[in-house]
Design a protein around this nucleic acid. Structure first.
Lengths: 262, 262
DNA sequence: CCAGCGTTCCCGTTCAACGAGAACAATTCG
DNA sequence: CGAATTGTTCTCGTTGAACGGGAACGCTGG
């Protein structure tokens, strides 16, 4: 009760001391859902999003009416397919994904390890597709998951071939380690990016998990700009040569498919 | 100007005569994007969503801040990846898609025609994945596209094995034809659904396009409820036997994979 | 029977949202 | 090269929808 007074003069919605716009609230509500928590009661959502019970019910009700959320027979709330539909129907990146799928399948069939496609989004590597065979190793990556640019092979590719500002921003910011091998020193990362540019691909041995190595190549558009990174996750001591050939072949295929579709 | 007065006493947002809630407006803005129109100016969005220019700019600005929309270097607005991310991260149906992908690839590799996965959403068949080989025929289906339940093989499966209320609702509603062969008579549709239930799969010859036939089988969960339809699109006069065997095999595989993941 | 939880309804208060309008910037066109 | 068109940004007075506390209701389970 006393806590609320802290924000009493902040910007916000009418009569609301919480200091956020309607849109912000909306996103906060959607963010209470996670891969492991896909159904919640309205009150539960309110608690997690920091909303009063009655407000939570009103907002959730509106979202259900709009089809962005769904109310199951058990009255619990789930994320609506409408949301996915709106996003998928009209996104540039997802047409890329569609074009890339056949080539990714080919890589997956030959290399038989996790094959994934990442794009740059908000200074992260965002994974838009992942194929995994039954005999592939462990993998922290998830579809719709993110990894920091400095700590993944896909990220290194997106960073090394991205624009100057992005690089400076990431080099300036904190470089959190995900494992013992993750580069955290700006100088070391700068050298690594040089290496990626000269080699034309990125190798991230043990950057995420000690036992595995990321291997990524750039996918470019007609103008030569890097729009995505195609990668595989290999066991730490595996030979990279064969996978690399397949990756390059697939990347060229995707580029051709994207160009042709125009 | 005079027009506006018509709605002067309708419910709506503060000072707004347009009679809609904030959430409705958000959805209307998102719906101005289509597969062929992926980038628009803020004013353009406003025009299409029926919003005044200054309001459109404010709302779009908020959505951009929230990451649901993105402003390109050309200042034009695109759908943000954040939207897709939120939807994909936490949707039940998309875990289904992930489980189904390997099996769909297998069907696609053997049958070499369009292979697709649909779920029931808001009385439509919503296609959550589609694989197409280079040599496959034409296909109206798109990922994130919809087809009526009575007019597609996937829809017939979802309808025939769906609950009673759904069937009555669809049988009562108007049955729009998509081609000459689409069933539009409730009695005929009722017989067709009986046929689907006894056969265990759906055959939709020429329901959508004269030249092709849809073939779909149900995918069920542990409790026996049908959660999706797996289908292929064959040339009108093709043999269905081989494809059918592959579809059933894949459906069983998906069911096993879903059960195992639990 | 009661305790705990989720949900729904009511209602007085209030300020963020609203959109007209004007000024400005960027493009297109004649 | 100016004029017309189109998109964007800002200001500002008005106002009603959103807000959330509170109370009542309906489950469920001990």
């Amino acid at each position: 009760m006393a806590l609320r007074a802290i924000a009493w003069h902040a910007d916000g919605v009418a009569n609301s001391p919480s200091g956020d716009s309607v849109t912000e609230r909306l996103v906060r509500v959607l963010e209470t859902f996670t891969p492991t928590r896909t159904a919640q009661t309205a009150t539960e959502i309110g608690r997690r999003a920091g909303l009063p019970a009655s407000s939570a019910h009103r907002i959730v009700g509106e979202l259900v009416d709009a089809g962005l959320l769904e109310r199951g027979e058990d009255r619990r709330i789930r994320v609506g397919m409408r949301l996915w539909e709106l996003a998928t129907r009209s996104s540039h990146a997802l047409r890329l994904r569609q074009a890339a799928l056949p080539f990714m399948e080919h890589v997956q069939a030959r290399v038989r390890e996790h094959t994934q496609l990442a794009i740059l989004d908000q200074d992260d590597a965002l994974f838009v597709e992942r194929l995994s065979g039954p005999d592939a190793g462990a993998n922290v990556t998830r579809v719709a998951g993110r990894l920091p640019l400095h700590a993944s092979s896909s990220g290194l590719v997106l960073l090394a071939f991205g624009d100057r500002e992005l690089q400076e921003r990431v080099l300036a910011g904190p470089l959190k380690p995900l494992s013992r091998a993750t580069p955290t020193d700006p100088q070391a990362l700068r050298r690594k990016l040089d290496e990626v540019r000269t080699l034309g691909h990125a190798l991230a041995p043990g950057y995420i998990e000690d036992v595995s190595t990321g291997l990524a190549v750039p996918v470019r558009d007609e103008t030569g700009r890097t729009v995505a990174a195609l990668s595989v996750v290999l066991p730490r001591d595996a030979q990279t040569e064969f996978a690399l050939v397949e990756l390059y072949r697939a990347a060229r295929g995707i580029e051709r498919a994207m160009g042709a579709r125009r």
